[in-house]
């Protein structure tokens, strides 16, 4: 995956779920259901490289994956 696509997708998921009370669980479930292991690994790598590109909730959630 290209970095920009991954960042956009992750942030978009966060934006659409973060208003929900159970947003952490929802985002986690979503990523686990639909993302390939490689995409999840890349996500974590990108966050560790430069977390400023990411929505805060994604950063929180990614840490638990």
């Amino acid at each position: 995956m290209s970095d920009s696509s991954l960042i956009r997708m992750a942030n978009q998921i966060a934006a659409n779920l973060k208003n929900r009370a159970d947003h952490r669980e929802a985002i986690t479930a979503h990523l686990k259901s639909f993302w390939t292991p490689k995409m999840l690994t890349e996500l974590k790598e990108l966050i560790s490289e430069n977390s400023t590109d990411f929505d805060e909730t994604i950063i929180e959630v990614a840490a638990t994956l």
């Binding site: 995956m1 390939t36 490689k38």
Partner: peptide, 18 residues
Amino acid sequence: KEPGMRIPNMLDAAIVGD
């Protein structure tokens, strides 16, 4: 047991070279 790639993921990955 893990999900595979969606079409846009595949196309993205192709451009990256994966």
